[in-house]
Design a protein around this nucleic acid. Structure first.
Lengths: 108, 108
DNA sequence: TAAACGTGAAACCAAAAGGTGTTATATACT
DNA sequence: AGTATATAACACCTTTTGGTTTCACGTTTA
């Protein structure tokens, strides 16, 4: 898994990683505790955390022998901005639909 | 590539597919013309289109020997809703930062 | 009708993704 | 000191991803 190759879009593509983000949104916690929420091995979770870390969606600090991960949601703003451009398209569809409904009214 | 296995998060994870969406947002067009925008083969683009189609992000209609694809942006609303939950976190950070700045003022 | 065009479909391939288990190392506890 | 704990670092495996080439088939068009 090459470093610094994962952007935020790829990071959130995996359901397990989205679940990790959700869990970390409640409270920060060490790796072993994050792992306890999932049916997969700690090693697998560590890899997901590395990908999330590449995308800057989580940050880690070492406390004694534990490594505590926390949510870092800011990069999600990139996704929001990307979505912004497309909102016009589904909003327009709604507007067109509304117009059609109103047109139906006219035909009564 | 198994059908109906791709959700919208996975569909938008790939840069080429995001580019396809952008191109289709300008105008609908047949496969061969979409392909002309990319340095990869038509077959590769067809596969991307199938994934986008699985995620309901594009729709296709056949016109003569051409298959015309169009953007269908509505499913992106799922992503927007998912993001909604996380907005509070990066907004809170900004609020905290603002508070710190104001606290600095107090110490002058 | 024959040639050109646009697409569909299959077979194949290298690399990445997602997962496993084992071993090593640093920190904490008794 | 000795043991248990939390993580790190490997080596390895299977499936998916993103790409290719080749060939067949229906639709236009010269």
């Amino acid at each position: 898994m090459p470093a610094a190759k994962h952007d935020v879009f790829q990071a959130i593509a995996d359901p397990t990683r989205r679940e990790v983000l959700k869990i970390l949104s409640k409270e920060e916690m060490p790796i072993s505790r994050i792992t306890s929420y999932f049916p997969v091995s700690r090693t697998a979770i560590v890899k997901h955390l590395q990908i999330l870390s590449d995308a800057k969606l989580v940050s880690a600090r070492k406390q004694g022998r534990e490594k505590i991960y926390a949510l870092h949601a800011e990069p999600l703003n990139d996704v929001k901005e990307w979505l912004g451009y497309y909102e016009q398209f589904w909003h327009n569809k709604l507007a067109i639909l509304k117009h059609l409904v109103e047109h139906e009214e006219d035909n009564k």
